[in-house]
Design a protein around this nucleic acid. Structure first.
Lengths: 145, 145
DNA sequence: GTATATGCAAAGCATTTGCATTAAA
DNA sequence: TTTAATGCAAATGCTTTGCATATAC
């Protein structure tokens, strides 16, 4: 059994070294975004951040999330209706499984993902950079029995 | 050489037989949504529809698109920023290639897509129904030489 | 001290909704 | 004739932006 050690601002500190101006707000947002199967909406990040720093604004949360996405430290996921979600799991390649009933989202590692390629006659002259896979289904709670 | 024959309402007529109340507006929207590599925004559908039926409203376009999506006759694609797009190609299984520069979207048939599965220990109890694959890259125009 | 981030409030865009009118069946 | 679709305009939800103030460096 290992307890979760709160290493405040592991990510934030790393970004500071890259020249990121480290504010209390940014540190809190970075601290919220840790772990697997974490797919928080901006709203959820804001709530969690407010628990620590009550005066943090939505605008700052959005600004910070967009910076983290542009820096490649957080993934942005648009799935189904509702707001975008933010996924801090960038170190391990993974895909997603979405419940079309309730929107629940899980990280998954499908089999055969490496073998998946786009033949050159299918590339339409594009320079292909990456791919995202979204499995759709119903979670246990939404399956009805 | 084969000229495109305008078969007015092929889709619309089929849906009428399924009990869809066939109005001029719905017929026009259905007529706009034909072909491969067709990924129109609601706005674009509205413009194209207005060329034929000037009085058609955005609300009706959205209503109709949502019905077609719910009937499984049109696919809804959320990719990157900007509005959703609508893809009438539902008969042939296919995936998408997105230009992250300009948003251009192409239908593709990747290799190895059939071999792609989610092992049961990765399903988190979900009943898996399908999957979407989005290749990301830069189109010829956005590659900069 | 200076450049940059913050908070607020307002604006923006995409989409949905309520309701009286119109049209399909 | 009846039931459902339309158009309009207002409302919604999410996200971005402008600007004066505050803060990291």
């Amino acid at each position: 059994m290992r307890r979760q050690m709160v290493i405040s601002s592991e990510l934030a500190e790393r970004l500071r070294q890259r020249g990121w101006r480290l504010t209390a707000q940014r540190r809190v947002v970075a601290d919220v975004l840790v772990g697997d199967h974490v797919h928080l909406s901006a709203e959820a990040v804001h709530s969690a951040a407010q628990a620590v720093l009550p005066e943090i604004s939505m605008a700052t949360v959005y600004n910070t999330l967009n910076e983290l996405v542009n820096m490649g430290e957080v993934l942005e996921i648009s799935a189904g209706p509702g707001p975008k979600r933010y996924d801090p799991n960038t170190t391990v390649a993974h895909q997603h499984l979405l419940c079309t009933g309730c929107g629940a989202l899980r990280d998954v590692a499908p089999e055969g993902a490496d073998a998946l390629t786009l033949p050159s006659d299918q590339r339409h002259g594009f320079q292909v950079v990456g791919l995202d896979i979204m499995f759709r289904g119903l979670c246990p709670a939404c399956t009805g029995t």
